[in-house]
Structures are given as structure tokens and as C-alpha cells.
């Protein structure tokens, strides 16, 4: 791909960021909806089944009325993936500015709940914008001239935990901490399950927390990690979660985990840090891809974890590596 002279307009960035805020807030993604429908059909706990049916009605009501599906906006945040050949008018500073403007505007116009306050003074700007808010995380993609903007609205209080495990704890340690988290936060439905459970394994402590959140929020129901060993563990953990005996709102049932996603990072040779995250009954995510010719395409699969992002080698030359095999 040649370097294009055309740059992505800053206005388009704001439009895309605004649109994904609105879509995420109102439209439940099809992959998650399908997962909840399947659970509603098989759930045998009467209370848990009632909750799932109420949620299915709620998704419909949100779309019909064009109102947010959940009043808890969570802590809205953004994920930006830059094509290596992409250019944006005004540069990355303009991108961040436009994202902040779109966040404030969408908060007022949808409306979304202005959740973000100063942690000590509790000052609320009433627009979900403030110091370090919304967070913006970045990744890059080779041979691409587009920019992807994803937003995720995930609750911020319950359903997430972190623990430093060690190699001696092994897979058993992973299963145990996973169960600890789901049982503890599943009671009374604090985790707003059934959830897409994301697990971050490895990296540094903070990396494991970031990876786990991305695994929960940036992959779709049914998606499997390309590493067969990790994919098998994802399916096993999903099964274990649904055999706890707990369903929606912590009522007796089987609907706990819509899917389980694991992401890994190389870690300290002596450790195995792990995080668990529950993306809730209002799993809100939406992505826009901006092209240099002005087009904006919308989707619900962020396509965040690309082969490039998960690379294991010093050099990135996928074509050559395949040829050598």
C-alpha cells in the first residue's frame, strides 16, 4: 500500500466517535444478543430465566425508543487503532480533542449518565470528560491507511479482580481464582452476569489487568484465541462458569458466562499475574473505521486483537514466515 496523500478529516473523527458512543449506548451487539437468547431458551431457574427475558425486552425497548439500554454509562472509554499509513488532519492531538468533544456531546444528547467525577472532590463536569477521562488506548496495524475508533461502556465497580499467581499454582490456580471472582461478584448479580468474561494472563501486573479488560470488551461471543491451548482453556472455563449453579442476578441457574476470552502477555519468569473481568448484561461496544476517502464504516466487532498485535517475534514479516514453513 502506498502512502496516501489524503488525510482523514478531524470532523470525520468527531462524527465517528459520536456515532459509536450513540450506537454503543443504545444497540446491543448481535453476537452478545444471540448468546443471551440461547441462554434464555435453556435456563431452568425460573428467576434467572425471568431476568434474561426482561433483558431481551429491554434491548428491544432501547432500540425502539432510541434510549440508552442501561443508565449506568460505566466509564466510557476509547480504543484507537491506527493504520501505519494513516494520517489524520491535526494529528493525534486533534484525534484526542475530537474524541473528548464527541463524548461530551453524546452524553448530553442521547442522554447518557454523566458518570465521571473527580475521585476526591466528587466534582462532576456532567459530560463524562475530565482528568484522564475518557481513557484512550492505542494500537497500530501495518499496511493500513484507516483508523479504527472503538468505544466501550462497561460498568466500573464490580466483577473485576486481579491476583499475582505463580508458576507452581498452574492451571488449577487459574481455575480457582476464576471461580473465586465469579462466585464473589456473581452473588446478588453484582457482576451483572451473564457476562463475557475476559482473562488477562501474564505481562506485568498492570498489563494483565489491561489485557483482561480488552479480552472481555474487544472480542465477540464465539471468537476463539488462535492458540489452540488457550482456546481449549477458554471453552473449559466457560463450561466451569456455567456449572457454578448460579445464573442472572445470582439466582439459582446456569447462565453465568456467555463466553470466555483469554489474552496473554509474556511475563516475569517467576510469576503468572491474572485478571478477571465481567463485561455485563449491557455489553456496549461499537467501532467505526475511517478511510482517507471520507468513508466511515460501522461494526460491532472491534477486531482489536490482530495477528500483528499478538506477534511473538522480533520482526513482523508474516508473508516471509509463512513461506519458510
Amino acid at each position: 500500500m502506498s502512502t496516501s496523500a489524503a488525510v482523514i478529516k478531524a470532523d470525520a473523527v468527531e462524527q465517528a466517535a459520536y456515532d459509536v458512543m450513540v450506537k454503543a449506548g443504545i444497540e446491543i451487539p448481535d453476537d452478545y444478543l444471540g448468546g443471551i437468547q440461547a441462554m434464555a431458551d435453556t435456563e431452568e431457574g425460573d428467576l434467572s430465566a425471568f431476568v434474561l427475558r426482561a433483558m431481551l425486552e429491554n434491548y428491544e425497548a432501547a432500540k425502539q425508543d432510541r434510549r440508552a439500554m442501561c443508565a449506568d454509562t460505566g466509564v466510557p472509554r476509547f480504543y484507537v487503532k491506527y493504520g501505519n499509513e494513516a494520517g489524520v488532519e491535526g494529528g493525534p492531538v486533534a484525534v484526542e480533542h475530537r474524541i473528548r468533544r464527541a463524548t461530551a456531546r453524546a452524553t448530553h444528547e442521547v442522554p447518557l449518565r454523566p458518570n465521571r467525577v473527580h475521585p476526591l472532590s466528587r466534582r462532576d463536569n456532567d459530560n463524562n470528560v475530565g482528568i484522564n477521562a475518557p481513557e484512550i488506548e492505542y494500537s497500530f496495524e501495518p499496511d493500513a491507511d484507516w483508523v479504527d475508533i472503538t468505544t466501550v461502556h462497561k460498568g466500573g465497580l464490580f466483577g473485576t479482580d486481579y491476583r499475582m499467581l505463580f508458576p507452581a499454582d498452574g492451571i488449577d490456580g487459574i481455575k480457582r481464582f476464576y471461580l473465586d471472582t465469579l462466585v464473589a461478584f456473581g452473588k446478588r448479580g453484582l457482576a451483572c452476569q451473564p457476562a463475557i468474561v475476559g482473562i488477562g494472563l501474564g505481562g506485568s501486573k498492570d498489563t494483565s489487568v489491561v489485557l483482561g479488560k480488552q479480552a472481555a470488551c474487544l472480542r465477540t461471543v464465539g471468537d476463539r484465541n488462535p492458540d489452540p491451548e488457550i482456546a481449549a482453556l477458554e471453552l473449559e472455563l466457560k463450561e466451569i462458569g456455567n456449572s457454578i449453579g448460579m445464573g442472572a442476578m445470582g439466582f439459582v441457574g446456569s447462565s453465568m458466562v456467555v463466553d470466555c476470552h483469554i489474552e496473554v502477555g509474556y511475563t516475569h519468569t517467576g510469576g503468572m499475574p491474572m485478571s478477571v473481568h465481567c463485561f455485563c448484561l449491557s455489553s456496549r461496544r461499537a467501532t467505526a473505521r475511517l478511510f482517507p476517502d471520507g468513508r466511515i464504516e460501522y461494526r460491532t466487532d472491534p477486531q482489536w486483537f490482530t495477528p500483528y498485535l499478538r506477534r511473538d517475534s522480533v520482526d513482523w514479516a508474516p508473508g516471509r514466515m509463512e513461506a519458510a514453513e
Partner: peptide, 8 residues
């Protein structure tokens, strides 16, 4: 219920 049935 849910949580939460914000739209309903």
C-alpha cells in the same frame, strides 16, 4: 432486574 433494564 438485570442489571439493568434501563430502557424499560
Amino acid at each position: 432486574v438485570g442489571y439493568g433494564t434501563g430502557a424499560l
